[in-house]
Design a protein around this nucleic acid. Sequence first.
RNA 1: GCGGACGUGGUGGAAUUGGUAGACACAACAGACUUAAAAUCUGUCGAUCGUAAGAUCGUGCCGGUUCAAGUCCGGCCGUCCGCACCA
Length: 868
Amino acid sequence: MARYNPKDVEPKWRARWADADAYRTKTDPDKPKYYVLEMFPYPSGRIHIGHVRNYAMGDVIARYKLACGFNVLHPMGWDAFGMPAENAAMQTGRHPAEWTYENIAAMRDQLKGMGLSIDWSREFATCDPSYYRHQQKLFLDFWKTDLVERRESAVNWDPVDQTVLANEQVIDGKGWRSGAVVERRTLSQWFLKITDKADDLLDALDDGRLDGWPDNVRLMQRNWIGKSKGLSMTFDFADAASALGGETGVRVYTTRPDTLFGASFIALSPDHPIAKAYAEKDDAVAAFIAECQNIGTSEEAVEKAEKKGCRLPLEATHPFDASIKLPVYIANFVLMQYGTGAIFGCPAHDQRDLDFARKYDLSVTPVVLPKDADADAFTIENEAYVGPGALYNSDFLNGLSVEAGIQAAIDRIETMGSGEATVNYRLRDWGVSRQRYWGCPIPAIHCPTCGVVPVPEEDLPVALPDVPAEAFQTPGNPLDRAEDWVNTTCPKCGGAARRETDTFDTFVDSSWYFARFAAARDETPVDKAEADYWLPVDQYIGGVEHAILHLLYARYFTRAMQDTGWLSMAEPFANLFTQGMVTHATYKDEAGDWVFPEDVVHDEKGARHADTGAPVAVGAIEKMSKSKKNVVSPEDIAGTYGADAARWFMLSDSPPERDVEWTDSGVAGAWKLINRIWETVDEHADIAPLSLLDGPAPKGIEKDESSVALRRITHGAIAAITDDIEGFRFNKAIARLYEFVGVLRKSANIDNWVRAEALSALTRLIAPFTPHLAEECWARLGGEGFISSAPWPEADATLLKKDTVTIGIQINGKRRGEIGVPADADKAATETLALNDATVKRHLEGATLRKVIVVPGKIVNIVATPNS
RNA sequence: GCGGACGUGGUGGAAUUGGUAGACACAACAGACUUAAAAUCUGUCGAUCGUAAGAUCGUGCCGGUUCAAGUCCGGCCGUCCGCACCA
C-alpha cells in the first residue's frame, strides 16, 4: 500500500482541473446562482497564512454550493494600487508597477497551489488600465449626477515628504516616515458626497436588507454614521454692530435644547470664520488659534489636551431671556467639522463644558433635577449630571422631562424663527484625493479659463505616465513633475491647461471590484443584465478590520452606481462573514530585535535562539505580521504536508470568526487524518468500490444491526456536516468528520455495499475541505469524473430517526444515572421506566416522591424529600 | 469616557431553543510493535476522596429565578474589539 504523497497527488489534480477548465463560470439564467467572494488581497509579495484561512473558508462554501447544484461564481483579483509599492520604490529604487506585477505573479502561483476552485479567467488587478479606465468613467458619471464635489479641506501635510498623510500615519504629531512635525494645510480636494446617503445607509442596517450581516458590524457602521437629532439655532450678538466678521449672531448646534436655561457661555471652534475674523485683528487670538492647530488630530493628543479658551470681546443674548448675556470664547475642544462649529456651553450637564467653566470661573446652573433629588440641596461639583430628570430653573420648561423639554424648546425656537430641528451625522463626506503616483488618476483638467473640466469620455483612460524609477527618490508626487503628462489642452476652450495630479484613494478601487468580477465588459464598467444575474454577492468573507471603511464605501458606491444606472440594487453584499486573524507568539532577543519562530528552540531553560543559544523573550501572541517576524510561510507547510493539510488545519478547532493561534502540532494532526482517510479508502477500494452502489442495497441489511448502525452514522454525518457548513461552523464539521472516519476504520465485518455507501459519502463530505485528497480517493474508488462535479450527498431521513435514546435521570437536580428508552416513549412510559431503574430505586429509599418532571427524549428529574 | 463581545480541563474548543458539562483535536502519561528512535496502533486523561462500586466539588467572583443554570436576571472582576472633545 502506497503512503499518501501530496507532493505528487496535489499538482496532478490541479493540472487536471486546469486542463478541464473545471471552475470556469458561465452566466446561466436557468440555474440558481451563488456568488462567493473573499476580500481580494493586496499584492504585498507573499501569501500569508491568514490568506490561507480566508480563502480556504470561501473555497469550502464555493465547492459545497457547486456540489449542491448552484451556478457558482468564485473569482480572484488584486487590490494593487497603494502606498507600499511607492515605499518599496523609495527603498529599492524599483518602479511600483514592476514591483506590483512581480508580486502578483508570485502570489498567484501560491494561491493556485492551494487548490482553490477559482475562475481565474476573471482575474484582474486594480492597477490595470483596463480596470481603472472604467473607474474613471464611473467617476465622470457620478460627477454629472451631482454625487461629487470639490471643496477645501484640512489635511495632515508632511513638509519633508511633501505629501498628505492619513491620520493613522501621523504618530505623536509627526510623519510616520519622515519624522517631521506634521502641519495642517488646506487643500482643494475631491469628495464623494456619502453624507447625502447617510440615512439610507443607516436605514438598511435595520430594515432587514442586511440581515445576513453580523450584528457587531452593523453596530459599528451605525456608530460610525452617528446620526443625532437636535436643534440648530442662532444666538444674536448683544452688540452686533461692533462684531467682526460681518455676522449679527452665531449659529450653534445642540442635542440638548432642554438645557438652554443652564447656558453660561458660547464657544467657537478655532477654525470658525468668526474666530478667524478676530484673529486678523488681534495677535493674542491668532496665537491661541495657532496653538490649537499644533495639538494635532491624533486621539492621544486630543485626550490629554486641557480644555482651553480665548475670550472674545463679544457677548451673545439668550434667546429666551434678553437680560442674560453670554460671553463668547474660542475653545480648543470645539470641532469645526461637526454641527455648526459652535456650541453653547451648559456646564451643569456636560462634562467638557463643566471643565471649561471651572477653569474660567463661569456660572454653573443645574436645570435637570434627578428623580428623588432635593432642588435646594442639589449641586454640581466636578461631575456633570447627564442623566434623566425633571427640568427646573427653566421658566416655561419647568417640570417637563428631558425628552418633553427638548421638544418644547425646539418648538419655541422654531416659532421665534431663530432656529430649526436638525439632523447631524458624525459621518463626513469621503475625501478621495491622494497626492500619490500609484493610484488611479482622477479624470479632470484644470483650465485657467474654464475652471475644472471633466476629461471627455473618449479620452479615457487617463493612464499613469511612465515615470522613471528614480522619480520616487525625490519627495513629493512624481505626477506633479511629469510635465509632458500634466500639460494638456482644455477640452472646452482648447487653451493650455493642466491635468489633475491627485489620484483616487485606493478604497475607491475596492468599492466596485465585485461588480466587475461578475459582469466585466471591455467597453463598459459592467454589463447590467449580467450584474443583475450575479449581484448581490451571496457570501462575502473577510477580516473584521474592514467592518467600517471598506464595507461602508462599497455600500455607498453601489448606491452611486444605482443612481447612475449601472446597477439595480443598493446593497452589494447579502451575507457577510468576518473571520478571525491568525496569530502566533512573538519573540525578541536580548538586543530587542524580533526573532523568527523557526529560529527559536524551547527547552528546560526556556526559549533560546537555535543558532546562538542566547535567551529569547517570549512576547505576546499577536496577529502575524512581517514587522514582528511572527510569520509562518504557507509554502513551508504545503511543502511538508501538502495544501490540503494546511487548509484542514486552518479550519479545524477554532470557530472561524475567532482568532486562531498557529501551532506546528496542529498541522501534524491534520496530516495524520489525511493519511488515515487515504488508508481507509485504499483498503476498501477493491472490496467496496463505488460501482457496488449502482445496484440496489442488498436484501436484509435493514435487519443487520451493524449495517444499520453504520448507515445511521453515515447519514447522521451527512446531515450534521451539511448543517455545519451552512452555518459556517467548519470546526464542528471537522470534528464530525474525525468521528465518522474513526468509526469507518473499524467497520471490518460490515457489508461491502454499506461500506461503499459510507466511503462515497465521506469522500464527498471532505471534498470542500481537502479537494486534492478527495479527488484521489474518488478516483481510487472508481468514481466517475471529478468529485468537484459530483452531487452533494443527501441524508436519508428514515435513518436519522433513532429507535431508542439514552436520557439522563436526575434526582433533585443531580444526575444519578441514565436509561435507554424507546424514542417514541411518552411521558408516562418514560416515567415508569425511570422509576423502575435500580439506581433510582436505591436513591429513593427512605424518601418521599414529590414530583417527576419528564422532558421526552431529554431528561427525567425526580423531586423527592427524605423522610425524617 | 461611550458602545459591544467574551470568560468552560494543561491547550484549542463542544454543549444551537435552560435539560446527561468537557464532543472532536492537541499536549501529557502508560502499553504494543521496534536492536533503538520516529511513525503507527491501544488505553488513561476536570479536581478531591475511595482498591472498587461510588461520593463530593466543578463552567471568572457574589447573589437571584427555576424541578433543573455554562446558558436567564442583578452586581462585581478580568480580557479583547470598535468609537473617542460629535455638543
